[in-house]
Amino acid sequence: MSNPGNPSNPGNPGNPSPRNLASASAAAVDREKRSERRVIVLVGLVLPLVVIAASVALMIAWLPRLPDPVATHWGPSGEPDGFGSPWAAIGLLAAIGVVFSGLMTYTAVRAVARGAEPASVRLTVVFSPVFAVLLSVIIAGSLGLQVDLDDATEAGDVFWVFLAAAAAAAVTGVLTWLALPSRGSNPPTPTPEPAVTLEPGERAVWTRTVSAPRQVLAVPVAVGALGLVPVFLDPEMWWSSALLILLAALIALVLVARVTVDSSGLVVRSLLGFRMLRVRLADVVSAASVEVDPVAEFGGWGMRFDSRGRRGVVLASGPAIQVERSSGGPIVVTVDDAATAAALLNGLVARAR
Protein backbone atom coordinates (compact mmCIF):
# COMPACT_ATOMS: atom_id res chain seq x y z
CA MET A 1 0.00 0.00 0.00
CA SER A 2 1.34 3.39 -0.88
CA ASN A 3 1.84 5.98 1.79
CA PRO A 4 -0.33 9.06 1.01
CA GLY A 5 2.08 11.29 2.92
CA ASN A 6 5.16 10.10 1.03
CA PRO A 7 6.56 13.08 -0.94
CA SER A 8 8.30 10.75 -3.33
CA ASN A 9 5.02 9.36 -4.59
CA PRO A 10 4.57 10.85 -8.10
CA GLY A 11 0.91 9.99 -8.11
CA ASN A 12 0.08 12.03 -5.02
CA PRO A 13 -1.38 15.37 -6.18
CA GLY A 14 -0.83 16.85 -2.72
CA ASN A 15 2.92 16.31 -2.95
CA PRO A 16 4.10 16.86 -6.53
CA SER A 17 7.58 15.62 -7.37
CA PRO A 18 10.41 18.04 -8.23
CA ARG A 19 10.21 16.82 -11.82
CA ASN A 20 6.53 17.76 -12.02
CA LEU A 21 7.23 21.15 -10.45
CA ALA A 22 9.99 21.83 -12.98
CA SER A 23 7.72 20.80 -15.87
CA ALA A 24 4.92 23.04 -14.61
CA SER A 25 7.34 25.95 -14.23
CA ALA A 26 8.73 25.45 -17.75
CA ALA A 27 5.20 25.26 -19.17
CA ALA A 28 4.26 28.51 -17.41
CA VAL A 29 7.33 30.28 -18.79
CA ASP A 30 6.55 28.96 -22.26
CA ARG A 31 2.94 30.21 -22.04
CA GLU A 32 4.18 33.63 -20.89
CA LYS A 33 6.61 33.88 -23.83
CA ARG A 34 3.90 32.82 -26.33
CA SER A 35 1.57 35.46 -24.90
CA GLU A 36 4.29 38.10 -25.11
CA ARG A 37 5.08 37.17 -28.71
CA ARG A 38 1.41 37.67 -29.62
CA VAL A 39 1.44 41.12 -28.03
CA ILE A 40 4.67 42.00 -29.86
CA VAL A 41 3.21 40.96 -33.22
CA LEU A 42 0.01 42.88 -32.53
CA VAL A 43 1.71 46.13 -31.41
CA GLY A 44 4.94 45.93 -33.40
CA LEU A 45 3.59 44.64 -36.70
CA VAL A 46 -0.20 44.70 -37.00
CA LEU A 47 -0.71 48.20 -35.56
CA PRO A 48 1.97 49.87 -37.75
CA LEU A 49 0.68 48.07 -40.84
CA VAL A 50 -2.85 49.34 -40.12
CA VAL A 51 -1.51 52.90 -39.82
CA ILE A 52 0.46 52.55 -43.06
CA ALA A 53 -2.45 50.94 -44.91
CA ALA A 54 -4.82 53.71 -43.82
CA SER A 55 -2.32 56.38 -44.95
CA VAL A 56 -1.77 54.66 -48.29
CA ALA A 57 -5.54 54.35 -48.85
CA LEU A 58 -5.99 58.04 -48.04
CA MET A 59 -3.26 59.10 -50.48
CA ILE A 60 -4.67 56.89 -53.23
CA ALA A 61 -8.06 58.52 -52.69
CA TRP A 62 -6.38 61.91 -53.14
CA LEU A 63 -4.72 60.99 -56.46
CA PRO A 64 -7.42 62.52 -58.75
CA ARG A 65 -7.10 65.81 -56.82
CA LEU A 66 -3.28 66.00 -56.77
CA PRO A 67 -1.04 67.75 -59.33
CA ASP A 68 1.34 65.55 -61.27
CA PRO A 69 4.18 65.80 -60.51
CA VAL A 70 3.83 66.56 -56.81
CA ALA A 71 6.33 68.34 -54.59
CA THR A 72 8.56 65.79 -52.84
CA HIS A 73 11.20 68.02 -51.27
CA TRP A 74 11.26 71.50 -49.72
CA GLY A 75 14.35 73.71 -49.54
CA PRO A 76 15.60 75.85 -46.64
CA SER A 77 13.37 78.71 -47.81
CA GLY A 78 10.26 76.57 -47.34
CA GLU A 79 9.55 76.44 -51.06
CA PRO A 80 9.25 73.16 -53.00
CA ASP A 81 12.47 72.37 -54.90
CA GLY A 82 12.00 68.68 -55.77
CA PHE A 83 9.19 66.98 -57.66
CA GLY A 84 8.09 63.48 -58.60
CA SER A 85 5.21 61.08 -59.11
CA PRO A 86 2.71 60.78 -56.23
CA TRP A 87 3.01 57.01 -56.63
CA ALA A 88 6.68 57.28 -55.62
CA ALA A 89 5.69 58.82 -52.28
CA ILE A 90 3.03 56.16 -51.74
CA GLY A 91 5.44 53.35 -52.61
CA LEU A 92 8.13 54.81 -50.35
CA LEU A 93 5.82 54.82 -47.34
CA ALA A 94 4.61 51.29 -48.01
CA ALA A 95 8.06 49.81 -48.61
CA ILE A 96 9.93 51.47 -45.74
CA GLY A 97 7.04 51.06 -43.30
CA VAL A 98 6.57 47.34 -43.94
CA VAL A 99 10.31 46.53 -43.85
CA PHE A 100 10.95 48.54 -40.67
CA SER A 101 7.94 47.08 -38.85
CA GLY A 102 8.96 43.57 -39.80
CA LEU A 103 12.54 44.15 -38.68
CA MET A 104 11.54 45.59 -35.30
CA THR A 105 9.07 42.78 -34.67
CA TYR A 106 11.64 40.11 -35.56
CA THR A 107 14.21 41.78 -33.29
CA ALA A 108 11.78 41.93 -30.36
CA VAL A 109 10.66 38.29 -30.75
CA ARG A 110 14.29 37.22 -30.92
CA ALA A 111 15.05 39.26 -27.80
CA VAL A 112 12.25 37.50 -25.88
CA ALA A 113 13.64 34.11 -26.91
CA ARG A 114 17.07 35.14 -25.62
CA GLY A 115 15.65 36.39 -22.33
CA ALA A 116 16.46 40.08 -22.83
CA GLU A 117 15.32 42.52 -20.14
CA PRO A 118 11.69 43.69 -20.39
CA ALA A 119 12.43 47.39 -20.88
CA SER A 120 14.71 46.64 -23.83
CA VAL A 121 12.04 44.53 -25.54
CA ARG A 122 9.34 47.15 -24.93
CA LEU A 123 11.57 49.89 -26.34
CA THR A 124 12.19 47.86 -29.50
CA VAL A 125 8.46 47.23 -29.98
CA VAL A 126 7.58 50.90 -29.39
CA PHE A 127 9.93 52.04 -32.18
CA SER A 128 7.75 50.29 -34.78
CA PRO A 129 4.40 52.17 -34.36
CA VAL A 130 6.26 55.41 -33.58
CA PHE A 131 8.16 55.24 -36.86
CA ALA A 132 5.02 54.24 -38.79
CA VAL A 133 3.09 57.23 -37.43
CA LEU A 134 5.99 59.63 -37.99
CA LEU A 135 6.56 58.56 -41.59
CA SER A 136 2.84 58.37 -42.41
CA VAL A 137 2.09 61.87 -41.15
CA ILE A 138 5.09 63.37 -42.95
CA ILE A 139 4.40 61.75 -46.33
CA ALA A 140 0.60 61.90 -46.23
CA GLY A 141 0.68 65.41 -44.78
CA SER A 142 3.02 66.70 -47.48
CA LEU A 143 0.66 65.33 -50.14
CA GLY A 144 -2.38 66.67 -48.30
CA LEU A 145 -0.97 70.19 -48.67
CA GLN A 146 -1.21 69.77 -52.44
CA VAL A 147 -4.79 68.53 -52.74
CA ASP A 148 -6.74 70.59 -55.33
CA LEU A 149 -3.63 72.56 -56.39
CA ASP A 150 -3.04 73.10 -60.11
CA ASP A 151 0.73 73.35 -59.66
CA ALA A 152 2.85 71.71 -56.97
CA THR A 153 5.01 74.83 -56.72
CA GLU A 154 2.09 76.48 -54.94
CA ALA A 155 2.39 74.05 -52.00
CA GLY A 156 2.97 75.78 -48.67
CA ASP A 157 5.67 75.23 -46.07
CA VAL A 158 5.84 71.75 -44.51
CA PHE A 159 7.03 72.98 -41.09
CA TRP A 160 3.65 72.35 -39.49
CA VAL A 161 3.49 68.89 -41.06
CA PHE A 162 6.79 67.93 -39.44
CA LEU A 163 5.68 69.43 -36.13
CA ALA A 164 2.42 67.45 -36.25
CA ALA A 165 4.34 64.28 -37.16
CA ALA A 166 6.70 64.71 -34.20
CA ALA A 167 3.80 65.33 -31.81
CA ALA A 168 1.81 62.34 -33.11
CA ALA A 169 4.87 60.08 -32.88
CA ALA A 170 5.58 61.21 -29.30
CA VAL A 171 2.00 60.55 -28.19
CA THR A 172 2.07 57.15 -29.93
CA GLY A 173 5.30 56.25 -28.17
CA VAL A 174 4.02 57.16 -24.71
CA LEU A 175 0.67 55.38 -25.16
CA THR A 176 2.29 52.28 -26.65
CA TRP A 177 4.86 52.09 -23.85
CA LEU A 178 2.15 52.35 -21.19
CA ALA A 179 -0.04 49.79 -22.95
CA LEU A 180 2.66 47.14 -23.26
CA PRO A 181 2.84 44.72 -20.30
CA SER A 182 6.09 44.23 -18.42
CA ARG A 183 7.61 40.79 -18.02
CA GLY A 184 8.96 41.49 -14.57
CA SER A 185 12.19 42.66 -13.03
CA ASN A 186 15.61 42.87 -14.65
CA PRO A 187 18.01 39.93 -14.44
CA PRO A 188 20.26 39.79 -11.35
CA THR A 189 23.89 40.86 -11.34
CA PRO A 190 25.98 38.10 -12.97
CA THR A 191 28.29 35.97 -10.85
CA PRO A 192 31.90 37.24 -10.96
CA GLU A 193 34.53 35.03 -12.56
CA PRO A 194 36.93 33.28 -10.13
CA ALA A 195 39.92 35.57 -9.63
CA VAL A 196 43.32 34.64 -11.06
CA THR A 197 45.91 34.27 -8.31
CA LEU A 198 48.74 36.77 -8.78
CA GLU A 199 51.96 36.95 -6.80
CA PRO A 200 53.13 40.33 -5.47
CA GLY A 201 55.01 42.15 -8.24
CA GLU A 202 53.85 39.70 -10.91
CA ARG A 203 52.92 41.47 -14.15
CA ALA A 204 49.91 40.24 -16.13
CA VAL A 205 48.34 41.70 -19.26
CA TRP A 206 45.41 40.47 -21.37
CA THR A 207 44.50 42.05 -24.71
CA ARG A 208 42.22 41.25 -27.66
CA THR A 209 40.88 43.01 -30.76
CA VAL A 210 37.14 43.10 -31.42
CA SER A 211 35.27 44.34 -34.48
CA ALA A 212 31.68 44.75 -35.59
CA PRO A 213 30.12 42.24 -38.06
CA ARG A 214 30.89 42.64 -41.76
CA GLN A 215 27.48 44.07 -42.57
CA VAL A 216 28.01 46.79 -39.97
CA LEU A 217 31.56 47.50 -41.20
CA ALA A 218 30.02 48.07 -44.63
CA VAL A 219 28.20 51.17 -43.30
CA PRO A 220 31.24 53.51 -43.25
CA VAL A 221 32.27 52.17 -46.66
CA ALA A 222 28.84 53.01 -48.07
CA VAL A 223 28.88 56.47 -46.44
CA GLY A 224 32.34 57.15 -47.84
CA ALA A 225 31.27 56.07 -51.33
CA LEU A 226 28.19 58.26 -51.06
CA GLY A 227 30.48 61.13 -50.11
CA LEU A 228 32.10 61.04 -53.55
CA VAL A 229 28.80 61.72 -55.32
CA PRO A 230 28.41 65.48 -54.59
CA VAL A 231 31.90 66.42 -55.80
CA PHE A 232 31.42 64.43 -59.00
CA LEU A 233 28.09 66.15 -59.68
CA ASP A 234 29.38 69.61 -58.82
CA PRO A 235 33.03 70.37 -57.88
CA GLU A 236 31.85 73.31 -55.79
CA MET A 237 30.15 70.80 -53.48
CA TRP A 238 33.53 69.47 -52.29
CA TRP A 239 32.73 70.50 -48.71
CA SER A 240 29.69 68.20 -48.69
CA SER A 241 31.87 65.29 -49.89
CA ALA A 242 34.49 66.12 -47.27
CA LEU A 243 31.91 66.05 -44.46
CA LEU A 244 30.51 62.68 -45.56
CA ILE A 245 33.98 61.14 -45.87
CA LEU A 246 34.88 62.50 -42.42
CA LEU A 247 31.68 60.99 -41.03
CA ALA A 248 32.59 57.63 -42.60
CA ALA A 249 36.03 57.77 -40.98
CA LEU A 250 34.56 58.58 -37.56
CA ILE A 251 32.09 55.70 -37.82
CA ALA A 252 34.89 53.31 -38.82
CA LEU A 253 37.00 54.36 -35.84
CA VAL A 254 34.44 53.12 -33.31
CA LEU A 255 33.67 49.80 -35.04
CA VAL A 256 37.06 48.17 -34.37
CA ALA A 257 38.69 48.32 -30.94
CA ARG A 258 41.52 46.93 -28.82
CA VAL A 259 40.52 45.75 -25.33
CA THR A 260 43.20 45.54 -22.64
CA VAL A 261 43.19 44.44 -19.00
CA ASP A 262 46.29 45.25 -16.93
CA SER A 263 47.31 46.75 -13.60
CA SER A 264 45.64 50.05 -14.53
CA GLY A 265 42.23 48.42 -15.07
CA LEU A 266 40.18 48.00 -18.25
CA VAL A 267 40.93 50.14 -21.31
CA VAL A 268 39.29 50.13 -24.77
CA ARG A 269 41.04 52.01 -27.59
CA SER A 270 40.27 52.55 -31.27
CA LEU A 271 42.67 51.38 -33.98
CA LEU A 272 44.32 54.82 -33.96
CA GLY A 273 44.84 54.70 -30.20
CA PHE A 274 41.92 56.94 -29.28
CA ARG A 275 40.65 55.94 -25.83
CA MET A 276 36.99 54.97 -26.11
CA LEU A 277 36.46 53.76 -22.54
CA ARG A 278 38.41 53.29 -19.32
CA VAL A 279 37.63 51.75 -15.93
CA ARG A 280 40.34 52.36 -13.34
CA LEU A 281 41.29 49.37 -11.20
CA ALA A 282 40.34 51.25 -8.00
CA ASP A 283 36.81 51.68 -9.38
CA VAL A 284 36.27 47.97 -10.12
CA VAL A 285 34.06 46.04 -7.71
CA SER A 286 33.91 42.81 -9.71
CA ALA A 287 33.98 41.49 -13.27
CA ALA A 288 31.91 38.76 -14.91
CA SER A 289 31.52 37.14 -18.31
CA VAL A 290 28.05 37.61 -19.85
CA GLU A 291 26.34 36.98 -23.19
CA VAL A 292 25.23 40.06 -25.13
CA ASP A 293 22.91 40.62 -28.09
CA PRO A 294 23.77 44.11 -29.46
CA VAL A 295 20.45 44.69 -31.24
CA ALA A 296 18.10 43.20 -28.66
CA GLU A 297 19.83 44.67 -25.59
CA PHE A 298 21.58 47.82 -26.79
CA GLY A 299 19.78 48.72 -30.02
CA GLY A 300 22.86 48.42 -32.23
CA TRP A 301 26.64 48.48 -32.34
CA GLY A 302 29.24 50.97 -31.17
CA MET A 303 29.43 52.98 -27.95
CA ARG A 304 26.02 52.17 -26.50
CA PHE A 305 23.85 52.18 -23.38
CA ASP A 306 20.79 50.13 -22.44
CA SER A 307 17.65 50.50 -20.33
CA ARG A 308 19.31 48.83 -17.31
CA GLY A 309 21.87 51.58 -16.92
CA ARG A 310 24.68 49.61 -18.54
CA ARG A 311 26.94 51.32 -21.06
CA GLY A 312 30.08 50.42 -22.94
CA VAL A 313 31.56 49.32 -26.24
CA VAL A 314 29.25 46.80 -27.93
CA LEU A 315 30.65 45.53 -31.23
CA ALA A 316 29.73 41.84 -31.46
CA SER A 317 27.21 39.25 -30.35
CA GLY A 318 28.34 36.74 -27.76
CA PRO A 319 30.71 36.98 -24.79
CA ALA A 320 31.35 40.27 -23.03
CA ILE A 321 33.03 41.59 -19.90
CA GLN A 322 30.61 43.19 -17.46
CA VAL A 323 32.32 45.31 -14.83
CA GLU A 324 30.49 46.39 -11.69
CA ARG A 325 31.82 49.76 -10.51
CA SER A 326 31.79 51.63 -7.22
CA SER A 327 31.24 54.98 -8.94
CA GLY A 328 28.40 54.20 -11.34
CA GLY A 329 26.50 51.65 -13.42
CA PRO A 330 27.95 48.53 -15.02
CA ILE A 331 30.33 48.72 -17.98
CA VAL A 332 29.98 46.17 -20.80
CA VAL A 333 32.61 45.40 -23.44
CA THR A 334 32.00 42.65 -25.99
CA VAL A 335 35.13 40.61 -26.73
CA ASP A 336 36.19 36.98 -27.20
CA ASP A 337 37.65 35.16 -24.18
CA ALA A 338 35.79 37.52 -21.86
CA ALA A 339 35.93 35.00 -19.00
CA THR A 340 39.75 35.13 -18.92
CA ALA A 341 39.73 38.93 -19.00
CA ALA A 342 37.19 39.11 -16.16
CA ALA A 343 39.13 36.57 -14.08
CA LEU A 344 42.36 38.55 -14.51
CA LEU A 345 40.62 41.82 -13.63
CA ASN A 346 39.21 40.22 -10.46
CA GLY A 347 42.71 38.91 -9.62
CA LEU A 348 44.25 42.35 -10.05
CA VAL A 349 41.55 43.87 -7.83
CA ALA A 350 42.08 41.21 -5.14
CA ARG A 351 45.84 41.78 -5.12
CA ALA A 352 45.44 45.57 -4.95
CA ARG A 353 43.29 45.22 -1.85
Rank of each mutant, 00 (worst) to 15 (best):
N3A: 13
S8N: 15
G11K: 11
N12W: 04
R19M: 13
L21V: 13
D30F: 06
E32I: 08
L45P: 02
A54R: 11
L58R: 15
L58W: 15
A61L: 15
P64C: 07
V70S: 10
T72N: 11
W74L: 06
G75P: 09
G78P: 03
E79H: 13
E79K: 14
S85Q: 08
P86D: 10
G91T: 07
I96N: 04
T105H: 00
T107N: 04
R114C: 00
R114L: 06
A116H: 01
R122K: 09
L123R: 10
S128E: 02
P129G: 04
L134W: 12
L134P: 06
L134S: 12
V147M: 10
D148F: 11
A152M: 07
E154H: 13
A165S: 14
A167F: 12
A170L: 15
G173Q: 04
P188T: 05
P194I: 07
T197S: 14
P200C: 06
E202G: 07
E202T: 12
R208Y: 03
V210T: 10
A212L: 08
P220N: 09
A225S: 11
A225W: 07
G227P: 07
L228W: 13
V231C: 10
S241D: 09
S241T: 14
L244Q: 08
L250H: 06
V259D: 00
S263L: 10
S264T: 14
G265R: 05
R269S: 12
S270A: 15
R275W: 03
V279R: 05
R280E: 15
D283K: 04
V285A: 12
A288N: 02
S289A: 12
E291K: 04
V292L: 00
D293Q: 03
P294L: 02
V295N: 10
F298E: 01
R311P: 02
A316K: 08
G318Q: 03
V323R: 00
R325E: 00
S326E: 10
S326A: 14
V332W: 02
D336Q: 13
A342N: 02
A352H: 12
